[in-house]
């Protein structure tokens, strides 16, 4: 019998792959397989609700790390991480002056991975302020605010302010000495406005001193109002990048 090379029959791996990814349920979630052709790869971006804020194709200089250092993306990554850890923290935290501090203490000691979640939230919050500032510097020094991207720079400045406010409102929530006095100092700065300073400080902290009202206001702003605003401005920010043809390039 002549020995000719025969293609190997399907092995166990192929069988497993076929069962896992070619079944009815999987294909009801992911309508096509792994996108291996350029056309399918573009469709994968354009038809996916999470990915379609990307353009389908991008200039090759923009994939270089040193062009952006991923700073905008990192800021968004921090925002997502803060949302996830923040939701977890909300399970254990009540914004009441009698409970807030004890809640944070018991979160650290009685909750499994509670300390880790709180640490993650804290360091990511600091990191987000830093990455947003660095992102602004990157955009400035690469001249990426120039036409037609003027308004997106303005949206970016608004997002910087929202980031600072998000971090600032979160600073009060542990209700420890650090929180109370940092917010007292911070809101005194707002109270120094020439004409309506006292009024705006009163509205901000719901009284003359940082107390129960301030804690509730800062909590509400921190967990719903400011993140919602930030999400809206972020959507506009990302969408306009895509509409303006991706990142700026030399003419």
């Amino acid at each position: 019998m002549a020995m000719t090379e025969q293609p190997k029959g399907p092995g166990l791996g192929d069988w497993l792959y076929d069962k896992l990814f070619h079944n009815y349920i999987w294909s009801s979630v992911f309508r096509s397989g792994y996108p291996s052709t350029p056309r399918n790869q573009m469709l994968a971006i354009a038809t996916n609700v999470f990915l379609h804020l990307h353009p389908t194709r991008i200039h090759k200089t923009h994939v270089k790390i040193t062009h952006t250092y991923c700073l905008g993306g990192l800021s968004f990554f921090m925002f997502l991480g803060l949302t996830v850890t923040g939701v977890m923290l909300m399970f254990y935290y009540v914004p009441d002056v009698n409970r807030a501090f004890t809640d944070v203490q018991s979160l650290e000691t009685n909750v499994r991975f509670g300390m880790l979640i709180r640490n993650l939230h804290r360091w990511m919050a600091h990191a987000m302020v830093l990455t947003v500032l660095l992102h602004m510097m990157r955009v400035f020094y690469t001249g990426a605010y120039k036409p037609p991207r003027e308004f997106n720079w303005v949206v970016g400045v608004i997002l910087l302010v929202l980031t600072l406010l998000l971090s600032f409102t979160g600073y009060l929530l542990p209700w420890d000495q650090l929180a109370l006095w940092a917010i007292t100092v911070g809101t005194n700065i707002a109270g120094a406005a020439p004409i309506l300073g006292g009024q705006s400080r009163f509205v901000l902290i719901g009284g003359f001193d940082v107390g129960p009202n301030a804690l509730l206001r800062f909590y509400t702003l921190h967990v719903i109002a400011l993140p919602l605003l930030a999400a809206i401005f972020m959507s506009v920010h990302f969408w306009r990048i895509r509409r303006d043809g991706g990142l700026a390039r030399p003419l």
Binding site: Q41, M42, A44, T56, H59, K60, V63
Partner: peptide, 9 residues
């Protein structure tokens, strides 16, 4: 000069 966003980005 363009790359595909999937997978390069």
């Amino acid at each position: 000069q363009e790359l595909l966003v999937w997978p390069d980005l």
